[in-house]
Simulated assay, not measured.
Amino acid sequence: MCRTLLIVFASLLLSACGNGGTEKDKAAETVALVPVEAVAAAARPIDASYSGTATLEADREADVVAKTGGVLLRLLVEEGDAVRQGQVLARLDDASPRLSLAKAEATLRKLEADYRRADEMFGRKLLSLEEHDKIKFDLDNQRAVHDLSRLELSYTNVIAPIDGVIGKRMVKEGNLIQVNQPLFHIVDFDPLLGVLNVPERELNILKPGQPVSMSVDALPGQRFPGVIERVSPVVEAASGTFRVTCRFNATLQTLKPGMFGRIDVVYDRKQDALAIPRGALIEEDGETAVYLIVDAPPSAEVKPKDGKAVDAPAPAAAPAAVPAAAALHAQRRVVHIGFSDSEYVEVRDGLKAGDRVITVGRNAVRDGTLVQVLDTAAASASSVPVAEKTP
């Protein structure tokens, strides 16, 4: 019963207020505004850069293969060990090569003695030139056999062909090793290379020696400096790109081959460019534009280009109701941009310092839409809960 009486009383009160309004009150009509956030264009340093992605790869890496056969008797290194060029990595069974070398040495000593006697006899005219030359030929041939046997024996010590780190071990002790069988994979971590496939329009911009920086997914928050090592002079017809090879020093082996990196090449810098956030740009109809915040006339209506008065567009979010005379509206402005980085773009034409452009809510407005600029700093402060005082 009480609830019904309250409803009736409220209806009568609203009716009385409506009938008692004046023409002056109706003139203070309120309109719905679209809430937006805006940032003023201001001078700031900005870099001209090219960004791309690449997978790091080692400049030098090698598979260590067996040059002779035999049973693997001993492994001297393991995965992750740093090795130097010429270091012994493993040893194979050398019994058979040693016997072959001993046999070659014995035959060599015999032929050397035969040649000394033949040389004396040839000096006394007791041996023909033909027989002397034949003995000398046999001696030279045996020397080659001896050297080959010594070389085969040396192959039982598997050595590192380059400096680096053992990335993979592919055999175990006791395995029977065949000739040319892979045993280890060695990777030289310093330097590491990242290859960018760059569109041909950048061909005259990127040069060897330019500094670069890289971030990798595996090490967030860190950036690694590098330099452009070389630039391919050939543009691939199929993709319309050319190869740019960047070099990075793997300090303390932080970077690893196979890591995925994002590389930024900064090729120019302006200290006082007029810049706005990238989020303010709108690409439509082949033009780059922004929405400015400008003063609105004291009216609840907006006139589009055809001259007919229409109501202001309804907001996408819950609008605020304010007097129309205090409102602002959005104005579309075509701009010409220059340098850009990950956050800001340079505006070369279309804006001046201090112009406010819409960054949040730009998709909900059109040219002439009435807007309300939110104070993001105040909104953030008001969202922090106040601690209750304990009595």
Rank of each mutant, 00 (worst) to 15 (best):
T359I: 14
I293F: 00
E236L: 08
D140V: 02
V83T: 05
K172E: 07
A66F: 10
A280L: 03
L12A: 08
P315Q: 06
I46H: 12
D63R: 07
V294R: 01
L92Q: 02
Y115P: 00
S239D: 08
S15T: 06
V64S: 05
K207F: 07
F224V: 09
G258Q: 02
S215K: 11
D272M: 05
A275M: 10
S128D: 14
L72N: 06
K308D: 05
V171Q: 05
T30L: 15
L12H: 05
M259F: 10
K305R: 14
A144G: 09
E200W: 05
D114F: 05
A144E: 08
V360E: 09
A321N: 08
K168R: 15
A66L: 06
V357R: 03
R278C: 04
D355I: 02
P319G: 06
L126G: 08
A330Q: 02
G221S: 03
G167M: 06
G350L: 07
P35G: 06
M121Y: 06
L101S: 12
V198H: 13
S232V: 04
L206P: 04
G18H: 11
L101G: 10
F137G: 04
V195W: 09
E131K: 15
V31P: 05
A95W: 03
R243A: 14
E301W: 15
L89E: 00
G123F: 05
A309Y: 12
L129Q: 14
L252E: 13
P161G: 03
G69S: 00
M214W: 02
L176A: 05
P97C: 10
E120P: 08
R223M: 11
L92F: 02
A58K: 08
